[in-house]
């Protein structure tokens, strides 16, 4: 997922990429609208039959795109609900999507930060300490076979009963999900300088600390950003799932759950849209930080 920063890539994107992507996105929208008609048609026809009205094809289509609780809301309904609950309501209101998004985002960022720090520290230990490499690394991998998302309810309930509630339990789940890609990526990154470079440091009589700060750390930067991108996406998923068992109080996960309880499909979709936007923005921000850092290091600008 390392972005291509070759010179002239901008021109190539405009010439060769935007058009195909647009076509694909457009066809997804067309399929979506068609799917909305297919899935919602039954209800419209049923209503019409009960009222004893014959509907033309145009009317069936129009009505299946404007139901209150459709099986599949049309894109414009989702965007409308998204717009209304984002900009149309006060931020303090319970219906405000901004408020819910902020609650999820804060847990995501807290967990992501903790996970990244924990991951880097573990990687430093694994690279420098033989015992940790032999005994901890297999368990780091094994830790990911526990479907943490599946035990999120337990973590939330247990932490709640010892008095920890609110942001921290969700951040914990995010942390658990996000430390793993960082450990794996950073171990690879810290080990990326080859024998030659390490020998060079050795001839300069550099200590472990100097080797770390002057060689291993800078060398690991591309790996760091690649794994941070994966980690932040995982962290967002963790925060959303962490909100499910708390009784659907607040956050994007809670919006989805309450939407599924009350059949408010449009609400689920607009929460999904918000989650997608958050994920895209977070990944893009890390991509930006990557570009700035690598450029400042005089690397592949």
């Amino acid at each position: 997922m390392v972005a291509d920063h070759a010179p002239g890539s901008g021109a190539r994107i405009v010439g060769g990429r935007v058009f195909p992507v647009l076509v694909v996105v457009l066809s997804i929208l067309v399929i979506w609208y068609a799917g909305a008609v297919l899935l919602n048609r039954a209800w419209v026809l049923d209503q019409a039959q009960r009222a004893g009205v014959e509907l033309s094809v145009g009317e069936v289509v129009a009505q299946s795109w404007s139901q209150e609780r459709p099986r599949l809301p049309a894109p414009h309904q989702v965007v409308e609900d998204f717009w209304n609950s984002t900009f149309g309501t006060r931020v303090t209101s319970k219906r405000s999507l901004v408020r819910h998004a902020w609650i999820t985002l804060s847990a995501t960022l807290a967990g992501f930060g903790l996970g990244a720090v924990l991951g880097i520290m573990l990687a430093v230990g694994i690279v420098h300490d033989r015992t940790m490499n032999a005994s901890v690394m297999p368990w780091v991998i094994a830790s990911q076979t526990i479907p943490i998302l599946a035990i999120a309810p337990m973590i939330i309930v247990v932490l709640n009963s010892v008095g920890v509630s609110g942001l921290l339990p969700k951040a914990f789940i995010s942390m658990y999900l996000s430390f793993f890609p960082v450990v794996v990526g950073m171990v690879k990154g810290f080990r990326s300088p080859d024998r030659m470079l390490l020998d060079q440091m050795h001839t300069w009589n550099a200590g472990r600390r100097q080797t770390f700060w002057k060689l291993r750390w800078p060398a690991s930067m591309p790996y760091l950003f690649a794994s941070l991108k994966v980690a932040v996406a995982a962290s967002l998923v963790g925060a959303i799932i962490g909100e499910l068992p708390t009784g659907a109080v607040a956050g994007l996960g809670a919006r989805m759950l309450s939407g599924s309880y009350y059949g408010q499909t449009v609400q689920i979709w607009s929460a999904l849209l918000m989650a997608a936007i958050l994920a895209a923005v977070l990944v893009a921000l890390i991509g930006l930080a990557e570009r700035v850092t690598l450029a400042a290091m005089g690397g592949r600008a």
């Binding site: 996406a233 959303i240 989805m256």
Partner: peptide
């Protein structure tokens, strides 16, 4: 791939 697809579960 980066989106929280698991949120589609209720749907």
């Amino acid at each position: 791939s980066a989106l929280p697809i698991i949120g589609m579960a209720p749907i």
